[in-house]
C-alpha cells in the first residue's frame, strides 16, 4: 500500500489499577495490548470484537483522547504519539471522530449551529458569516433542513442527531474519521439511511474511515478491510469479502457464525462459543482464545510468539496453534 494515512505501531494502552495502601498501582488493565495496523487514503477499515475487547479505547487513543502507554500513532507520515495538545491542534483538523450515542456527545445547551461551527471557531477558520454559511451547507449535505441550525439537539430524533454528529465531524474537511459504533444506537430503518450517507460522503470527500462496530453484517457492508480484535489484540485482518468467506481464526469463525441471519430458511452451521472473554487485568499467558475454549494445545502456546503473520497476500492472522487449522498453522509457522 502506498503511504497510509494512519499507521499504528505496536500501540499499547494500559490503564492503572490502584489499590492497597496509598493507592499504589497494583496492576493494569491492558485494554489495547500491542496493535499494529494501517489505513490507506480513502479506505474503510472495519474493527470488530466483543464488548470490552478494547476497540473503542483504540479509537480514542488514535485521536489522542487518551494518551497511549507505548507504541506510536503515525498520521500522514508524522508521529503524533508524543505531541503536546497545542501542537496536536492543527492536526486535529484532519482527523475527527463520531461517537456512539449522539444524545450524549452533543451538548444540549448549544444550538445545532453552534455545535457544528465550534470546530471552525477552535481552528479559527472563517468569519462568523462564512461559518454560518458553512453550517447551512453541512446540514444540507447530511440531509437536514437549514432551519435546524437554530434548534437544539434534543429536539431531534436519534438518526437526525447522528447526522448532526457527522456534520460536526465533516466541518473541518478531515482526511480521516474515527466512527465509534455510529449506528449501534439507531433503529434498522434509520441505520440504513446513516450508512448510505456515510458511503456517499466517503465517495465525495475521499475520507478514510476507521469503522468500529460489533454488528458484523454492518461492518462487512461498509468496509474495505476488516480487523478482528480479541482482548486487546488484533487476531485477524483481511479484505472484507475474504474474511467473511474464508475466515482462518477460530474466533472470527465463531463471531461470523453467531450473526443472526434474517431468513428463517437459512440453517447455518453454528460454532458454539462457550465461556467468556477473560479479564484484561490478568490475561492468560498463552493464547487468550485458546484459554477460553479450553484448547488442548493451550499449554503449548504459553511463551510462544503469537504475532500476526501474512498467510496469504493481504490476509494476516495471529500465529496461534489453538486457533488455526492444522494446515494453516503449518503454513504460518513456516513463514514466521
Amino acid at each position: 500500500m502506498s503511504d497510509p494515512i494512519l499507521e499504528l505501531r505496536n500501540l499499547k494502552m494500559h490503564f492503572p489499577v490502584r489499590g492497597g495502601v496509598m493507592s499504589r498501582q497494583i496492576n493494569s488493565v491492558k485494554a489495547v495490548d500491542g496493535v499494529s495496523l494501517s489505513i490507506g487514503h480513502g479506505e474503510t477499515l472495519g474493527l470488530v470484537g466483543e464488548s470490552g475487547c478494547g476497540k473503542s479505547t483504540l479509537g480514542k487513543s488514535i485521536v489522542r483522547l487518551t494518551q497511549p502507554t507505548a507504541g506510536s500513532v503515525i498520521f500522514d507520515g508524522k508521529d503524533i504519539t508524543q505531541l503536546s495538545q497545542r501542537k496536536l491542534r492543527p492536526l486535529r483538523r484532519n482527523i475527527q471522530m463520531v461517537f456512539q450515542d449522539p444524545a450524549e456527545s452533543l451538548n444540549s445547551r448549544m444550538s445545532v449551529g453552534q455545535i457544528i461551527s465550534e470546530p471552525l471557531e477552535v481552528q479559527k477558520i472563517g468569519t462568523q458569516a462564512t461559518r454560518r454559511d458553512t453550517v447551512e451547507k453541512l446540514l444540507e449535505r447530511v440531509g437536514m433542513p437549514k432551519s435546524a441550525a437554530q434548534r437544539f439537539s434534543f429536539e431531534f430524533s436519534g438518526g437526525q442527531r447522528q447526522r448532526i454528529g457527522i456534520a460536526r465531524a465533516l466541518a473541518l474537511n478531515p482526511d480521516m474519521i474515527v466512527l465509534d459504533e455510529p449506528v449501534s444506537a439507531l433503529d434498522v430503518s434509520v441505520q440504513s439511511q446513516v450508512l448510505n450517507l456515510l458511503l456517499d460522503l466517503q465517495q465525495d470527500y475521499n475520507m478514510a474511515y476507521l469503522f468500529i462496530a460489533h454488528d458484523l453484517a454492518v461492518v462487512k457492508h461498509i468496509s474495505d478491510r476488516v480487523a478482528v480484535m480479541y482482548l486487546g489484540k488484533i487476531v485477524e485482518l483481511a479484505d472484507a469479502d475474504t474474511i467473511y468467506q474464508h475466515p482462518r481464526h477460530a474466533y472470527t469463525k465463531a463471531l461470523i457464525s453467531a450473526i443472526p441471519e434474517p431468513d428463517p430458511q437459512v440453517e447455518r452451521p453454528r460454532v458454539h462459543l462457550e465461556g467468556e472473554v477473560p479479564s484484561p487485568i490478568n490475561p492468560p499467558e498463552g493464547s487468550a482464545f485458546g484459554h477460553r475454549i479450553n484448547h488442548p494445545r493451550y499449554e503449548e502456546s504459553i511463551g510462544m510468539d503469537l504475532s500476526m503473520v501474512e498467510i496469504e497476500k493481504g490476509h494476516w492472522v495471529a500465529a496461534d496453534p489453538c486457533c488455526l487449522s492444522e494446515d494453516d498453522y503449518l503454513r504460518v509457522s513456516s513463514k514466521s
Binding site: S192, L195, I222, S223, D241, Y244
Partner: peptide, 16 residues
C-alpha cells in the same frame, strides 16, 4: 433495510 452477509459490499441500502 438490513445489510446481510449476502448484500454486495458498499451497495446502496434500501431505506425507509
Amino acid at each position: 433495510a438490513i445489510p446481510t452477509l449476502a448484500t454486495p459490499r458498499k451497495a446502496k441500502l434500501k431505506t425507509i
